[in-house]
Design a protein around this nucleic acid. Structure first.
Length: 917
RNA sequence: GGACCUUUAGCUCAGUUGGUUAGAGCGUUUCGUUGACAUCGAAAAGGUCACUGGUUCGAGUCCAGUAAGGUCCA
């Protein structure tokens, strides 16, 4: 009885091997000068995150890369960790507080931050545990968190450093304000959404010409109390006479000037623009040019304040819009309103429209912009697919300063202290530059009692941009040494989504170039050499998977249903390079089925002969006897080497799904469907379907050795994709010894290393097998057409040339088995039996009942018509002088051979037809 | 407004530098289980490669334009 069970049951196998790998320290990456390093830093998921299909894809690919690197003999480090995700995490904890009817302000800053920490201890980082269920071979002993003390020191140190270099400044500027999270956001965190609203046409009465009006169009009438001017284009003849005059502001009535500014678009609306500097970026600039003080009419949570006038004060912004429209209507200032759609910026996280708001913030002028361009443009960093480099470069061309301060509590508190009593709202540049008034340092001031620390924390991305090197202990020399910084940096590959090119990828490149190994060449400072961008996983309707839509399957459910290997194999098989993909559960099922197929092929091997020495490639090769090879042996080995080369190529090009498909096709079609089937006539007792010749023990041993070889190399090729089942079978079939692991202690030989050991399959024999396969398939179809099922035993007469018969005879036993043929004999064609023309002669199907001559005739006529068309087409091609003159020799040769084959078939069909009478 | 992507079988997608009669998986239909696997095997049906033009001896593949869908930037 076989020790391998009838079907593959993943759960215990997965648990067993993951624990064994962990126990043996297989995932540890240690600097080893004897090997080349291979490093991947995980894109740190939010500490609040749970595993999604996107994570499954992304992390499976990373695991595939590091596992393959280990098999190739490299020292692999996959460093895991989580991101503190400032606003997101704070929101989660605030939500918990709300259940107790409390806000973070009730607790105060210190208590609240403590609370977040304890939340994190208790519930944070679940996702890392979930990744383990997927088989992730990350070095968990190195797990990092962006708020770890050492990491925080790096983040704050960078702030101090960049401040000292003049890259960071404090300024009162227009920011994207989130009225829900009550913080500033960077431009990248604002999402433009087409939004339906109304366009209001409002008239402002000219002060010294009662009855004369100037009209503007606006989508935000509630901001009218913040208007400080009406602007027109200086060259607009409609308004030249009015420039310098005053109009009445229709809400919170007051006189405001008409000014000329060339930023005004003459074509839009009436060509006049209301200027509201406190609530619009462009207006702010116009206001500055004309020295008009802004009037801020909004509170931080976007309610109207007292400056909006008594009728609007206290209203929430959208209610105020309605009310403003009503007031304008009553006063006759509203000319009309019409439906309108425009782009409105929304807070990506909170999902509410942002407000442009004038506030004091900390800003960063990016360092190393030009070098960051060069690194990608000159290929020091390669993007896959390459096209994303355009997006990257375009962003760098148009880069704006980065607002790095956030008005939240959870995060890295900015290491700046203000002298007590200083008016922070009235700071001048000179004040900020004065160390007596503003202190910036890692250690803080020596007399803390005289200072107040900055309230703001840093944008989360202003910590994660240091990820590739801060995770390796930078900047502390001793820690770096211990972590193997010199060995593992730059990292090899980054696997991430194109949606964070700006947030993360570009910023990491600039940070690496600025901070790592100053003065050294660019290729030593870049954070990674390859960036692989995955696609986005969508549902069947093409929608993004999201919690709110509920269209995302839980990966853990899928693992329970199909096994981690099945999930991995399935997801990779549907993930073409850099293209979004539609999730199909049946492909995951396909992954599971493939695992079962692999399992059963190994079971077949085990059931068909004693296991011999499988302990190394050399041991197996020593059992292989090339002298005993038949065409099928040559063919399967030829395909094994071809597949090995193809998978190699796929890894260099990051074509994971192509690799999986190559292995799938080879293993299922070439090995299981053909080689294993034809092996049966060498391995198993004679059956009624073959000639009954006794089995040759040497031939059998050779066949088993070849199966051992193919299975071994297949397990190696597959291991990065399906680590658990391959490790299990590796041991069950005796490829690995107790205490060693496929994943750690094995070297994957490439095709030239295998042929280098004397295994050189004959491609001509391989080609012959391909022909035989085609004939088998053709004859099976022929049988089916005549009502003879695949397994029914049929009798055949073949009229073949000596050459063809020699080949058929050499393969007689297995052909009989593959065809379900009771007999296959050489002889003259019978005109009354159904017939078919193949590459190896004409075949008669001898049935109990004679074929219907009329039907047979009709079929031959139809076949002849088809072949005649093909012959004519090929002849026409060859008769074309332009073709024969210009086409390459190989193509010409192919066409000639094709014609010869077609003509031979045509002649044979004609002969059969004639014989039929 | 600018840039990029996609359009191939009922569905989801391959198709490398242009070269026989365009492939796979799933689905559908027919046949097949004591012999590794029904999580399986055999076979079949199914495509004017979005459209229009061009380059070429030859175009799914290269070029230009059009249409539809999608993404990003402004």
């Amino acid at each position: 009885m076989a020790s391998i069970t009838k079907s593959y049951e993943p759960h215990d196998v997965e648990k067993k091997w993951y624990a064994a790998w962990l126990e043996a320290g297989c995932f540890a990456g240690k600097a080893n000068p004897a090997k080349a390093p291979y490093t991947i830093m995980i894109p740190p998921p939010n500490v609040t995150g749970v595993l999604t299909m996107g994570h499954v894809l992304n992390n499976t690919l990373q695991d595939i890369l590091v596992r393959r690197a280990r098999l190739e003999g490299r020292e692999a480090l996959w460093l895991p960790g989580t991101d503190h995700a400032g606003i997101a995490t704070q929101t989660v904890v605030e939500k918990e507080l709300r259940k107790e009817k409390k806000t973070r302000r009730d607790l105060g800053r210190e208590k609240f931050v403590e609370k977040v920490w304890s939340w994190r201890e208790e519930k944070g980082g679940i996702i890392l545990k979930q990744l383990q269920a997927l088989g992730a071979s990350a070095d968990w002993s190195r797990t990092q968190f962006t708020m770890d003390p050492a990491y925080s020191q790096a983040v704050l140190g960078v702030f101090v450093d960049l401040y000292g270099k003049g890259h960071i400044y404090r300024g009162k500027r227009m920011v994207n304000w989130c009225p829900s999270s009550l913080t500033a956001l960077s431009d990248e965190e604002v999402e433009m959404r087409p939004t339906k609203g109304l366009l209001y046409q409002v008239r402002y009465e000219v002060v010294d010409q009662p009855g004369k009006f100037i009209e503007v169009k606006t989508t935000r009438p509630e901001t009218i109390p913040g208007d400080v001017a009406i602007a027109v284009h200086p060259d607009d003849p409609r308004y030249t006479a009015l420039i310098g005059k005053k109009v009445w502001r229709p809400l919170n009535r007051a006189q405001i000037p008409i000014i000329a500014d060339s930023a005004v678009d003459k074509e839009f609306g009436s060509g006049a623009l209301k200027i509201t500097p406190a609530h619009d970026k462009v207006d702010f600039e116009v206001g500055q040019r004309h020295k008009l003080a802004p009037i801020d009419i909004l509170t931080p949570d976007a309610k109207l304040n007292e400056l909006a006038g008594p009728e609007l004060e206290g209203l929430e912004r959208f209610a105020a819009r309605k009310k403003a429209a009503e007031l304008l209507k009553e006063s006759g200032a509203l000319v009309k309103e019409e439906p309108y759609e425009n782009n409105v910026g929304y807070s990506e996280r909170a999902g509410v429209p942002i407000e442009p708001r004038l506030t004091w913030q900390w800003w960063l002028k990016y360092p190393r912009i030009e070098e960051a361009k060069t690194a990608v443009r000159d290929g020091h960093i390669k993007f896959y697919p390459e096209r994303w480099s355009k997006v990257y470069l375009h962003w760098l061309e148009n880069i704006q300063d980065w607002c790095i301060s956030r008005q939240v509590w959870w995060g890295h508190r900015i290491p700046v202290w203000y002298a007590k009593g200083l008016d922070k709202e009235a700071l001048t540049e000179a004040d900020i530059a004065d160390p007596k008034k503003v202190h910036v340092s890692l250690a803080g001031p020596s007399d803390p009692q005289n200072w107040v620390q900055e309230d703001d924390v840093l944008d989360t991305w202003a910590s994660s941009w240091l990820w590739p090197f801060a995770t390796l202990g930078w900047p502390d020399k001793a820690t770096m040494e211990k972590a193997g910084f010199d060995y593992f940096y730059p990292t090899t590959t980054l696997v991430t989504g194109p949606d964070i090119i700006f947030f993360w990828v570009a910023r990491m490149i600039m940070a690496g170039l600025e901070f790592v190994r100053p003065g050294e060449p660019l290729e030593r400072r870049i954070p990674f050499k390859h960036v692989y961008f995955t696609g986005i996983i969508r549902d069947q309707q093409g929608r993004k998977m999201s919690k709110s839509l509920g269209n995302s399957p839980d990966p853990l459910d899928l693992i329970a249903k199909y096994g981690a290997d099945g999930l991995r194999f399935g997801i990779v098989s549907i993930a073409p390079q850099g293209q979004d993909l539609r999730f199909q559960e049946d492909r995951i099922e396909g992954g599971k089925n493939f695992c079962n197929k692999l399992w059963n092929a190994c079971r077949f091997r085990e059931m068909n002969g004693e296991m011999a020495d499988n302990s190394s490639l050399g041991a197996i090769l020593a059992r292989v006897e090339p002298a005993k090879f038949d065409a099928d042996d040559h063919a399967i080995l030829d395909r094994l080497l071809g597949t090995t080369r193809e998978v190699d190529r796929c890894f260099t090009e990051f074509e994971f799904s192509a690799a999986v498909q190559a292995i799938y096709g080879f293993f299922w079609n070439d090995f299981c469907d053909w080689y294993v089937e034809v092996s049966k006539s060498k391995l198993q007792p004679p059956s009624s379907q073959d000639s009954g010749a006794p089995r040759d023990p040497a031939e059998k041993a050779n066949c088993l050795a070849i199966q051992d070889l193919v299975l071994r190399q297949t397990l190696l090729l597959l291991h990065p994709f399906t680590p658990f089942i391959t490790e299990e079978l590796w041991h069950l079939l005796g490829y690995g010894s107790e205490g060693t692991f496929l994943m750690r202690d094995t070297h994957l030989e490439n095709s030239s290393q295998i042929t280098g050991r004397g295994l050189k399959p004959d491609p001509a024999a391989a080609a012959q097998v391909a022909q035989l396969k085609a004939v088998v398939s053709q004859v099976r179809a022929f049988k089916a057409e005549h009502g003879e099922g695949a397994s029914k035993v049929s009798e055949f007469v073949v009229e073949a040339t000596d050459t063809h018969w020699t080949v058929l005879e050499a393969n007689l036993t297995k052909l009989q088995r593959m065809l379900g043929a009771g007999s296959l004999v050489r002889g003259a064609m019978s005109p009354n039996a159904p017939a078919i023309v193949t590459a190896f002669g004409s075949w008669n199907l001898i049935k109990q009942l004679k074929g219907d001559p009329a039907a047979e005739k009709a079929k031959l006529v139809k076949d002849l018509e088809t072949i005649a068309k093909h012959v004519a087409a090929t002849e026409a091609r060859l008769a074309n002088k332009a073709f024969t003159d210009k086409a390459p020799a190989a193509v010409l040769e192919g066409a000639r051979k094709q014609l010869a084959d077609q003509q031979a078939k045509q002649a044979e069909l004609q002969r059969l037809l004639a014989a039929l009478g």
